[in-house]
Design a protein around this nucleic acid. Sequence first.
RNA 1: GCCCUGGUAGUCUAACUUGGACAGGACACGGCCCUGCGGAGGCUGUAGUGCGGGUUCAAAUCCCGUCCGGGGCGCCA
Length: 571
Amino acid sequence: MFKQKVVELLAAVGFQHPLLEKPDLQFGDVAVPCFSLAKEWKKAPQQIAIEITEKLRSKQQAEPKQFKWLSEINSAGAYINFKYNQSLVANEVITTIRTQKKKYGYNQEGNNKTVMVEFSSPNTGKPMHLGHVRNNCLGRAVSNLLSASGYRVLRASLMNDRGAHMAKAMVAYQHWGERKTPASSGKKGDHFLGELYVKFKQEAEKNPILEEEAATMLRAWEAEDKKTIALWKKLLSWCVNGFNQTYKEMGIKFDVLYWESKLWKQGAELVDLGLQKGVMEKLEDGAITATLEQYSIPDKVVRRSDGTSLYITQDLYVAKSRFDERNLDRIVYVVACEQDLHFKQLFKILELMGFTWAKKCYHLSYGMVALPDGVMKSREGRVVDADDLMKEMQDLAKKEVSRRYPDISEEELTLRGRAIGLGALTFFMLRLDPVKELMYDPKASISFEGETGPYVQYSHARICSIFEKHEGKIPKIKKPELLTHQTETALVTLLTEYPAIVLASTKQYDIHTLCHYLLQLATETNAFYGSCQVLNVEANLRDARLALLDAVRIVLKNGLGLLGIEAPQRM
RNA sequence: GCCCUGGUAGUCUAACUUGGACAGGACACGGCCCUGCGGAGGCUGUAGUGCGGGUUCAAAUCCCGUCCGGGGCGCCA
């Protein structure tokens, strides 16, 4: 909120569009490099910095009121450094945070426009794995961030509930299911099916006839054979029940579910339209392809020679129907980088078809999640199962908690274990730039030291503990000018930056930026304790520090909330 | 083979869009703080831009080449 004032000040002395940087503490709170003006003004940047600083200072003398939020303006080399009037800034930011509470950091960038975020989109018939965990975490965080930026968010998932993988599970069930059910065997529905799927893979290697059976099963499904459909529905409902348990465990909810089984034939009229518009052309054997070669993208077949449609045909249809029906401002597809080309083709076709909303489609691509010894592939049987992983993390967290608090109740232990275990997992998934491949190292992920979710949660809980010691009293800030220690002013400055971090994180889908901000805030808070006492000091100073910590606590909780992580009061 | 993407200390990573003040942080390793308002902490030391060119007053950042990793190139999803 004060950066904007700096921009205005500079504009008043003829420096348009300055770049604001965060300098080293010794220099000030905001720094502006003058290199960009060197050419235009035909002067050395150092000289420019001195001149602008002089101008600002004389302005400051003329109208001191306008500058009361600034304490110093200095030039240093090619930089102009601004130092805030700390007590004024501290008072304003702390009061703002404590007034807005949960809403601090929100903005109205979205202006209530609607965005759909499609994520997760699992294949039924197999349980979710580590890759889905990253996807779910990203999808949830992006949704939360967009929501905080004033968008109406529709969380959507496209369930891939038909096709070869389901047919195989169905064949496997007929052979080896022995009339068992998830309930009778005490298994989660998706795991129950997952085991059948693996069984099919193993048996099919020995007995190729099974593949033919699966193909027959798929044809029967497509022909809507009654018995086949009944079997499919039974297996599907088991699987969906299983998924719902996983989503519940993660705390993820969807607003809209799409079912491939209801959509897979759609899109024919778009292909006809594409032909009319010359975006698509018929091949010799009757298949139809979108011609993209002139845009350096490989052509893409959108209708088979037998007249049936393909996955991308469905995607074309689904995109159009979403924009037609829901007045969307944007769709964000959270899908792994394997499908980069698919989305490139999809978006290009939509654009060539003349849909103006095509440019509002965004593929949030993320790198593969790997195990230390190679990439995860379900058929290799080295899958890290999502449910197992979440349970493992919670067990580890519980172990840590009970080691520290042996007398804790089982109920409380479960709550904390859940918050900490899932927090660790979620933060681990979100702390990296999405384009980077993520190596899932079980040992590193369970560590509670370093750049982790539990570290941020710990900082929050530690503040809560101080308030508890103070009998829950939350004082007003009376003398913000007492917050003069280096660690205090650093915290205040960090707090002012939070809304800008949220906005930047949202605009660029850079969730890891928010993660790093929270780590920094947590580190700075812990450093603060090292040099400042809170409760055992004079009352006005104590209250000022408590007010500061209260604001930090709110921001930590808000930030973790956006990431989809709980902020427990005790750990 | 072609296309996309990444390469930053022993390991992982930030900054790359918009080139600028000693490349920021974490883990590991070494030293210190050890009856603390929660040590799940703080302070501190060592150590880094794959390689080769180019543009620029200035390059981790932009351009070209090269090497290495990952992904993709189906009338599969």
